[in-house]
Design a binder for these strands. Sequence first.
DNA 1: CCTCATTATTAGGCACTCCTAATTCTGAGT
DNA 2: ACTCAGAATTAGGAGTGCCTAATAATGAGG
Lengths: 228, 228
Amino acid sequence: MHAALQQETLTRSVEDYLKAIYRLSPEGRPAATSDIANLLELSPASVSGMVKRLSEQGLLEHVPYKGVQLTDEGRRAALRMVRRHRLIEAYLVATLGYTWDTVHEEAERLEHAVSDTLVERMAAVLGHPTVDPHGDPIPAADGSIEEPECVPLTEVAPGRTVELRRVDESQPERLRYIASVGLIPGAAVTVLERQPFDGPITIQASGRTHVIGHELGRVLFCTGDDGV
Amino acid sequence: MHAALQQETLTRSVEDYLKAIYRLSPEGRPAATSDIANLLELSPASVSGMVKRLSEQGLLEHVPYKGVQLTDEGRRAALRMVRRHRLIEAYLVATLGYTWDTVHEEAERLEHAVSDTLVERMAAVLGHPTVDPHGDPIPAADGSIEEPECVPLTEVAPGRTVELRRVDESQPERLRYIASVGLIPGAAVTVLERQPFDGPITIQASGRTHVIGHELGRVLFCTGDDGV
DNA sequence: CCTCATTATTAGGCACTCCTAATTCTGAGT
DNA sequence: ACTCAGAATTAGGAGTGCCTAATAATGAGG
């Protein structure tokens, strides 16, 4: 009821908290104070304080010492930010020469400044894209979001060829490396070999063979021929 | 020396103060506290406080009870914001369907969020424009700005035909009216009649005749055939 | 079931940016 | 010169959002 009123008055910080909590609570499992503090690079004490305020405002449900979850209103606000962020990334890459390693930082600031009108115009110019440059799905304006069923490359059986859908990484240097190896969303990747005990993975992508670490494999999400 | 360091840390508020003071001190004449308060819609007391802090930071020169001027460093920062604002306006109008009456508000928020990189890319996409949609000159990246010699329409002699260069107005409704009468930058305007005592002005623009109030005439800046 | 490391919260502070109310300064007109 | 309205400043206070240090709760291992 007062959602519309508050929507106008969320501060930059609040928007960041909501986005972080959204990111940290897949399937609505509660997020821990320390994880939020880590993600936002703040002290746990600061997070405790803000969480308390946001709970009182009805954006979060907080069980002290247990964790925090978004309310419906909080989730709406979070998804609005996610939509903005990903559309801005898509727009900057498509029209202003940004690359996927540089676009995150710019979007991180712009997402708090753009109007709904501007976001929707960018979406229209791009033909209403459904994924951002990293392959992350873009929530619809009504807040609905469709996460494709993906598995990390670390779980693809040797011999299988899969399509790379999403790269869950934000460090620019790592992204540049990943792109340099041809691992961009849409690429076909064949797993040639997988060493046991979280060892390296040998793959073929864009016709070349590469050995990648297990840790890197964990951020590369793929769908296979059978839909998984 | 510490200019570069501070550049990174100017807050939104500080940027707005600098921009306001720049606007209020043509030719470096000091700006009055109350004028700044008016423009930013703040109390004079708030302005006094901020002015004191910014003076201590070296962005302003303040003579208490007299007025405030930008230092070189403050002017640089102000011009940077003006450049951003006007380039953003030009970009939004050129590529995202904005009109001159709606673009100011969006730019007002974006100017605080964009990176130098983004601003320069927008400039490049537009072919480095020199004026914004209202005809205001866009400062160069080095801070130089070239104000064309203009006179308000209220000072153009009857019978003269001039070119409308700049419309110094930001209220959307007024801008829509002005555009509806064909008074956009670049338009040729002939002054047919001027009533005395700040009375209305009869003009011809886009082949039609209009009578406009003195107050409106004061925001329409023109250059004539003889350069003035 | 008790202890203790981990995690979270509260307490107390600070910087920023705004406010209203009270005070002080300035300069124009007598 | 003096007064006084208007402009500017200072005083005091509030909300946000962060911090460090101190305290409290949790739950895993002995």
